[in-house]
């Protein structure tokens, strides 16, 4: 049984945590793609930026000597998300809106987003250097252990407090987004515009407002994902740039432009990565007695070595692009 708990800790918890991060990022990318029709490469750095905004706010709050029962970085998150949303609007106004107004092709916007990526990355490193920071210098990172009431189980199910908060927050964000998209007038307008922008415009939907709301949602979600990722591991300037591609992979696997697909794609990739690097030999060992003698359990029975963990996402991405470029869910490609 201990082995099963180990499996649960490694694969299920790891997959859910990774999947939540991917899902939060992929929703933003997929919304921007659906409304504005371009692959927004600066999204990873918007996540990092969100992480740093949260870090500064947390440092300020901690400087006043105020303590909370929850991690400080988590408490200041709503404010940070607001700031990130304003920044996202500013980035759109400054760099993308003029190009759109000129009628530039989506590819031009894509290249512009590369420029924005470089600028954000340069600025972050300019001000914060390239060192690694932690939210938990001043307060402990709580570890939650749940002992199982079964006989012979000594290993507890364990995860950290930020991981729990991340999963809860992702669930809330996903449900809120679902209600926004299906129930509110603006959300319906967004879906209409993602379907057919011209038709949406002639039927009286305020497309400018829709674009602005898209950036607000994408910016806030990116900030949330970045801050929670930084709380879970640590805050580095290249934090999110490294997972930008898995996030794109998640968005594409779910079908670019489909918000629910992006969430499913995120979790799919998260689980695929943890499953691929899991050492299956651990699960075989209790059955040693039942197996024939000639069968020797190898030391490592992982599908890929752990150095290639991120590569799993890229391979899934490439395979999905080749076999089903519209994503694994049925639906029109936008």
């Amino acid at each position: 049984m201990n082995e099963l708990v180990f499996f649960f800790n490694q694969v299920v918890i790891g997959g859910v945590v990774l999947g939540s991060i991917y899902a939060l990022g992929a929703v933003g990318i997929t919304l921007i793609f659906g409304i504005l029709r371009f692959a927004h490469f600066a999204h990873g750095d918007m996540m990092t930026l969100g992480g740093f905004i949260t870090f500064i706010l947390a440092a300020i709050v901690a400087g006043f000597g105020i303590a909370f029962p929850l991690p400080t970085g988590f408490v200041v998150l709503p404010l940070a998300m607001g700031i990130a949303a304003v920044l996202a609007l500013g980035i759109d106004k400054g760099f993308y809106a003029p190009l759109r107004a000129r009628g530039a092709k989506p590819v031009t916007l894509l290249i512009a987003s590369i420029g924005v990526t470089m600028m954000i990355q340069g600025l972050i490193r300019l001000f914060f250097g390239s060192s690694t920071r932690s939210f938990f210098d001043g307060e402990p990172k709580k570890l939650i252990r749940i002992d199982l009431p079964f006989e012979g189980v000594t290993r507890p199910i364990s995860f950290t407090e930020p991981q729990l908060l991340l999963v809860v927050l992702t669930a809330i964000a996903v449900i809120a987004l679902h209600y926004f998209l299906t129930r509110s007038r603006l959300g319906k307008g967004m879906r209409a515009m993602a379907d057919n922008a011209d038709l949406a415009r002639v039927s009286g939907i305020n497309t400018r407002l829709v674009v602005r709301v898209t950036w607000v949602i994408a910016g806030a979600l990116a900030c949330m994902a970045g801050a929670m990722l930084a709380l879970d591991v640590s805050l580095k300037p290249d934090l999110a740039f490294n997972i930008l591609l898995p996030i794109f992979a998640a968005a594409i696997v779910g079908g670019l432009g489909h918000a629910y697909g992006a969430i499913a794609g995120g979790f799919l990739l998260g689980f695929a990565e943890t499953l691929a690097v899991f050492n299956w030999a651990v699960l075989l060992r209790p059955f040693r007695a039942a197996l024939p003698d000639w069968f020797e359990i190898p030391g490592s029975l992982a599908l890929v070595q752990s150095e290639y963990k991120l590569t799993v996402a890229f391979i899934i991405l490439v395979v999905v692009l080749l076999v089903r470029p519209t994503g694994i869910f049925k639906g029109a490609s936008t």
């Binding site: 512009a112 340069g122 490193r125």
Partner: peptide
């Protein structure tokens, strides 16, 4: 160490200005 990072920013600025 900070000024090394300036070049990334400068290039980002150059490409966005050029595109516009």
């Amino acid at each position: 160490s900070r000024s090394v990072q300036m070049r990334v920013f400068v290039l980002g600025l150059v490409i966005t200005v050029a595109l516009r």
